[in-house]
Design a protein around this nucleic acid. Structure first.
Lengths: 219, 219
DNA sequence: CTTTTATGAATGAAGG
DNA sequence: CCTTCATTCATAAAAG
């Protein structure tokens, strides 16, 4: 795996992780037509992985501390560096560049929204929406409509996932053995708040102190 | 949000068995003498692992950036974070940590889908989707979501092409940077910078030199 | 191997 | 609430 290689070639760039991972997959046959794949790691690789993660955890903790010390006596409200316009850089085809046209929650906003959502109440009432919007506006552009839509969509998503995860259908398919096709998305909700979008520094906020405990699965 | 990924591979038939192995998630063997020990992970776990690591990498990068912006802010009031790019799936070295797999229609599946699409009916109804999925599953792994997405994307593509072949009026509109903050009750017009690039500054001054060295280990 | 393109997937917003 | 559409992102596949 990449980790193993990294140790030996610190400056080598790997742009095809996927392929490497694939190569690391062992294939097993069951002898009756089907095969199954599993990812295999050696003890050494597992050990390296643990160390890597451990290092990240430590670094994160210390960076958080550093952040605290740096911000304890500063007014972050003035650090309005977010929402900068960025060129998509589509120079190759000379495409036009246009501004974003739809709202994208910042990580903090998302985290807050998720937390509210998880509290179980359905779509917030109008006054509640106003309140939430007000709170979230401290972390970036947002409107009541955004909040409303977010809850609508989040609910739908949640619902769909439940249907997929709970396909109360017995797998007693008669005739042929239709290899279970519906292996729908398995969203992992038990993980970190969305990190898929850019977050500006001021939006980085660890309201979740269990950073280091999320890797329980490796221990 | 985003970490909801599909888990689509080619070993569904033995999913359960794998899960069982997972439970132990620590021992693997060849079953005949145990000559070699290996760690076995399912794709799902691998995916989780990747994301966990990805998250750490992202957090670290963001914290570093935040640190930079905060420290520089003390000097230059108007300083700006350049085109910050923070792809959560990439480390500062452009090293992809997280990978995800996605469905790819087999030629036969594609042919069938195209044929259905050409028959003109719009987005198939749910039961129809099930039917199609069922049919296509005989030609390879596929899920209802895949089918649904395919039709959505196929139509969008079709539409786009039509616009191209139908060169209506010229519209050499200059992209304006003006942004009207989408406020309550109006169509959102906000913009948010998105993916850009981030680099782990080598010159970052860690309070604890140990961090720096350990980071290096990760690169 | 690196870059570009095609397209699967995620999700904000709109309409009913 | 549900469905549909538009836009964006990430990546498999193709090109260089």
């Amino acid at each position: 795996m990449e980790w193993e290689k990294q140790e030996q070639h610190h400056h080598h760039r790997h742009h095809h992780q996927q392929e490497e991972l694939e190569q690391n997959a062992n294939v097993g046959g069951n002898g009756n037509g089907g095969v199954f794949y599993v990812k295999v790691m050696t003890d050494a690789q597992m050990e390296i992985l643990r160390k890597q993660i451990s290092v990240y955890a430590t670094i994160c903790e210390q960076l958080v501390e550093m952040h605290k010390s740096l911000t304890s006596h500063q007014d972050l409200a003035g650090v309005r560096l977010g929402n900068l316009y960025c060129d998509p850089l589509m120079t190759s085809t000379g495409h036009k560049i246009s501004a974003r046209q739809r709202w994208t929650p910042t990580p903090v906003q998302l985290q807050i929204l998720e937390r509210i959502f998880d509290q179980g109440y359905g779509t917030p009432s109008k006054p509640k929406i106003k309140e939430i919007t007000s709170d979230l506006s401290q972390h970036g552009q947002i409107s009541e409509t955004n909040v409303y839509n977010w809850f609508q969509n989040r609910r739908a998503q949640s619902k769909r996932k439940q249907l997929i995860t709970t396909p109360n259908n017995a797998e007693s398919e008669v005739a042929t053995e239709v290899e279970s096709p519906n292996d729908q998305k398995t969203k992992s909700e038990n993980f970190l708040p969305q990190q898929n979008s850019v977050s500006m520094p001021e939006d980085l906020c660890f309201q979740n102190p269990e950073i280091g405990s999320r890797l329980h699965f490796l221990d």
